[in-house]
């Protein structure tokens, strides 16, 4: 058992970190304070340099893809990376991205749809993909920090992809777990920086034990979620992926509540980017049925219940 990345993984993740945190890159803390900021420049850089292909590289694989998703989700900006990185082994290489994923009700608002160039439908018995044309999608207003949209026309260009739908679904479950785990960590780190600097009652806020214990308990969950997700990415076993997603979705409720409490009124403004993490987390925590459904799934798969 090795928890450290191999040489190729270490190099890959190190370069990714450098690109994602470069000074003056403009994508780390954009100034427009909108509910989300689409990081087109970063996304193109990653795509042009083959980062989204890591899951099909022999020495990188799905574990690296999950780690990459986790890292990108820590950023305050928004891109479509989870499906592109984690589902890459199952997709036609010419399927254009960004990719929107339908994993439930196709009539519901779907994240990334207004910016997506293709859409993937993961059904119980088949996986289908379609390229999107102008006029196929209607953007919708949303609470969540993603571009959300609905179909404005019936898509007639669906093509069945010859893959095992269960394996695609488990990969997607891991991808969502990685994205939610990274999102919680990104928000947590932004709040930690605030708590170290902000002083009240003559002390740094972060020195109060009432806050420290809650942050420490959350840190345990965020750490555990990361490793559960990477382990699930390695085997893509159904029980592991459901455990990983159910665990992090369960943790998200408390973590998001605490982060907003600790930011106080500053966290209610758009001047601090906390909302960009928490309002992504608030969507992801209900993905694929939410914590209850995924934990139930974990139990039923582990113990072969009905």
């Amino acid at each position: 058992m090795y928890f450290e990345p191999n040489e190729d993984q270490a190099t890959f993740l190190s370069v990714l970190d450098q690109i994602a945190s470069g000074d003056g890159s403009g994508w780390k803390v954009p100034a427009d304070w909108s509910r989300f900021h689409w990081a087109d420049e970063l996304d193109r850089t990653l795509e042009d340099n083959g980062f989204y292909d890591c899951a099909i590289e022999e020495t990188l694989g799905p574990v690296t893809a999950a780690a990459m998703i986790h890292r990108l989700a820590r950023l305050s900006v928004t891109m479509e990376f989870a499906a592109s990185a984690m589902l890459r082994p199952f997709l036609p290489p010419d399927l254009p991205r960004p990719i929107a994923v339908i994993d439930g009700d196709p009539a519901a608002a779907i994240r990334y749809l207004p910016v997506a160039r293709s859409v993937l439908s993961i059904g119980e018995y088949e996986v289908r993909a379609a390229m999107l044309d102008d006029g196929d999608v209607q953007p919708v207003e949303s609470l969540f920090a993603y571009p959300m949209g609905v179909f404005s026309a019936t898509i007639g260009r669906w093509q069945r992809i010859d893959v095992d739908p269960r394996r695609v679904r488990e990969s997607w479950r891991v991808a969502v777990a990685a994205e939610l785990g990274g999102t919680l960590l990104g928000g947590r780190d932004a709040v930690l920086a605030h708590l170290r600097e902000r002083r009240q009652f003559g002390q740094a806020l972060g020195s109060f034990q009432g806050l420290q214990h809650r942050l420490a308990a959350s840190a345990t969950k965020i750490e555990a979620a990361y490793w559960l997700t990477l382990k699930a990415a390695q085997g893509l076993e159904a029980a592991d992926s459901a455990v990983a997603l159910g665990y992090v979705q369960n943790a998200a409720t408390t973590v998001v509540y605490d982060l907003h409490q600790f930011m106080g009124a500053m966290g209610l403004t758009l001047e601090h980017p906390l909302h960009r993490w928490t309002y992504r987390a608030r969507l992801l925590k209900s993905a694929l049925g939410g914590a209850g459904e995924n934990l139930k799934l974990a139990a039923s798969r582990k113990w072969r219940a009905a």
Binding site: R196, Q203, S207, F208, Q209, H213, L215, A216
Partner: peptide, 16 residues
């Protein structure tokens, strides 16, 4: 353990 996580893992200041 939570105290130690706060100081050593999260690099938070000593308790007020």
């Amino acid at each position: 353990q939570l105290n130690l996580i706060a100081h050593r893992f999260l690099d938070l200041p000593k308790v007020a």
